[in-house]
Write a protein that binds this DNA or RNA. Structure first.
Lengths: 232, 232
DNA sequence: AGTTTGCATCGTACAACGTACGAGTCAATC
DNA sequence: GATTGACTCGTACGTTGTACGATGCAAACT
């Protein structure tokens, strides 16, 4: 019987290694592996979005049969989970605990987080729906430590973390959804103009036409941090 | 030829009305209509989630053939859009512009917004992905006016609105995804415990075990408003 | 040597889905 | 009576995730 290694075991074969064609034929494809599957899935997601990832296409691009994937992965959902976590790794400044500039550290990590997700817009939609992977937990852990060191009271710590989490999630999902197509943008602009009498304040402030997403993110983040850590 | 009335025309038939069986047989089902379709879609979404809405099931429940829906709706996506906007209507205090308590008004509207979405958890996932419907635009318009009246500078207005938007979106999608199943919760708890050595601060603050979502939301909102409107 | 074992691949097949197409019904209009 | 247009729906197609079982193949064992 075959025992499906979709569990957390992950490590490659226990034998030596099935070894690629071992020096004989240059076999066009380098053999299936979890890493290759995830990497290719990310490529596919990047170019074709959430709906563009089909098990058959993924397998095709890997030079494998569709069902071969299921030896390495339990199901399609798991591909999503792995791709998501893979994209969220943080290589921050090494010795962040020694830093004196906690606010700079927080901002850096959060802006990097946002940048990661906007490089892979599908990830923004995935993150809030699924269990937290190791990389995102690491970011939260780092955030906890830094805020704690910055003087946020233990009683307020969770609220502060969730607030920042909410802010990042909201900002990235919103941004990612507006990025979709220029046609949509044009249509929205048109539609908004025709509704300007109903929404005068929105129209006047050009809320939906403002393109400075990056600036809005960091300014809003500043305000939020002001509220969370009032004493500067 | 039949001309599909899926456009914005929306209004019912131009003739008198096809009129229900007109007094003869009590025909078990009251005839298809956009309103009935949307209402039933919401029921289905509430009980079975985003993936539970299938055109065939929806039609079944309406006592109609699957393809009959497509006279009233262009496609499934449109059902989502209509259901979403339908769920977001706000009946706030009538004369809010006269209110002296702007902060109370903002908090009230945002907490109601959140409550609406958590009553229909699928809506949280839908909102950031789709074009803004009239009901959500109304909320944003109201928010704009109130903040403006509260003294937020025009230059900061958009940032403030987007910050609040981000906060609400993030909070509701996160909350909605945790609501899914008790089995998941138990599993997560288990997994977390086994990882406590890697994430000591998270573990210590019980970040992921804290169940006071409502309290966290309103406290975080307070902090955010503090930051947005520093002068009280 | 032959046999067994277990990792890994993949072809076939199926059920479920969204929806294109076109035929059908029936009341209002001409 | 004929025509029109709003509305309904049965059938059918293409696409999807994946269950099942056959197959290959290298290492381990006898």
């Amino acid at each position: 019987m075959a025992a499906k290694r979709s569990g957390a075991g992950s490590k490659q074969s226990q034998r030596k290694t099935p070894s690629p064609p071992a020096g004989s034929e240059p076999r066009s494809e380098p053999a299936l592996s979890l890493e290759r599957i995830v990497a290719t899935a990310i490529e596919l997601l990047d170019t074709d979005g959430l709906d563009g990832l089909k098990m058959r296409r993924l397998a095709d691009r890997l030079g494998a049969g569709a069902m071969s994937l299921y030896w390495h992965v339990g199901n399609k959902e798991q591909v999503f989970d792995l791709a998501l976590d893979s994209v969220l790794e943080y290589r921050g400044p090494a010795s962040i605990d020694a830093s004196e500039n906690w606010r700079g550290d927080v901002v850096h990590m959060l802006e990097d987080w946002r940048a990661c997700m906007l490089r892979h817009p599908w990830s923004a939609f995935l993150l809030p729906r699924r269990a937290l992977g190791p990389n995102i937990l690491s970011r939260l852990e780092l955030l906890s430590r830094t805020l704690s060191r910055a003087g946020v009271a233990d009683a307020d710590l969770n609220v502060a973390i969730w607030s920042l989490w909410n802010y990042v999630i909201g900002a990235t999902t919103t941004r990612a959804s507006f990025e979709l197509s220029d046609a949509d943008r044009a249509a929205a602009q048109q539609r908004l103009a025709s509704l300007s009498e109903h929404y005068p304040t929105i129209e006047r402030s050009r809320l939906l036409l403002d393109n400075d997403w990056d600036g809005a993110f960091s300014k809003g983040l500043d305000f939020l941090l002001d509220g969370l850590v009032p004493k500067l």
